[in-house]
Computed example of a mutant assay.
Amino acid sequence: MQFSSAQASRTPEAIAKQKTYKIHELVVLTGEQQSGVFRALVDAEENIKALNEKSDIEAIQKYKAEILSRLNDKIKGILTPDQYKTYLASLEEKNKK
């Protein structure tokens, strides 16, 4: 998932809700999965929002990578192996653009 500066003005919950919906459209989440993905995304968005308030660019990049890695681990634990494979393929496709 990409975190753009345009999202900085929205709440972490609003951003997480939109991203959860996009993941749900991609892999059809159960209610329990939706809840777990949403919580993981809110946590990541809150951490990134706090991080973006810092001025040390090097630290921001380092910690943002760590936040995204933890998010990926959480999502991997929530999704089924097939869902996770589809999710990763969509991320790779986005990164190509």
Score class of each variant (00 low, 15 high):
Gln2Lys: 14
Arg10His: 11
Ser4Gly: 11
Phe3Tyr: 13
Asn52Asp: 13
Pro81His: 01
Leu91Ile: 14
Lys54Asn: 15
Thr86Met: 06
Leu29Phe: 05
Gln2Ile: 12
Gly31Phe: 01
Asp56Gly: 07
Asp82Thr: 11
Tyr63His: 02
Met1Cys: 09
Leu29Asn: 02
Ser9Pro: 03
Leu68His: 01
Lys96Gly: 04
Gly31Lys: 05
Ala16Tyr: 03
Ala6His: 06
Ala65Ile: 02
Asp82Leu: 06
Asp82Ile: 11
Glu46Trp: 08
Ala59Asn: 06
Leu51Ala: 08
Ser69Ile: 00
Ala59Gln: 04
Ser4Asp: 09
Lys64Tyr: 09
Glu46Pro: 05
Ser9Asn: 00
Phe38Glu: 12
Ser55Gly: 15
Thr20Ile: 06
Glu93His: 04
Glu46Gly: 02
Lys19Asp: 11
Ile48Gly: 05
Gln83Ile: 00
Glu13Val: 08
Asp82Cys: 04
Ala65Cys: 04
Gln61Ser: 13
Gln7Tyr: 03
Ala44Val: 01
Tyr63Cys: 01
Leu51Cys: 01
His24Lys: 13
Thr30Ile: 00
Thr30Phe: 07
Ala16Gly: 12
Lys94Trp: 07
Thr80Gly: 10
Ile67Asp: 01
Leu71Trp: 07
Lys62Cys: 00
Ile23Asp: 07
Thr30Ala: 03
Tyr84Pro: 02
Tyr21His: 13
Glu46Thr: 13
Glu53Asn: 14
Glu93Ala: 14
Pro12Ala: 12
Ser5Ala: 00
Gln61Glu: 14
Ala44Ser: 12
Tyr21Gln: 15
Val27Trp: 12
Thr86Pro: 05
Lys54Thr: 15
Lys19Pro: 03
Pro12Asn: 12
Leu41Met: 10
Asn52Lys: 13
Ala50Pro: 04
Ile48Cys: 07
Leu79Ala: 10
Ala14Asp: 14
Gly31Ser: 03
Leu88Thr: 10
Leu71Glu: 05
Gly36Ile: 03
Ala6Gly: 07
Ser90Thr: 11
Ile15Asp: 10
Asn72Ser: 05
Lys76Met: 07
Val42Trp: 01
Ala8Phe: 10
Lys74Glu: 13
Ala40Pro: 04
Ala50Ser: 04
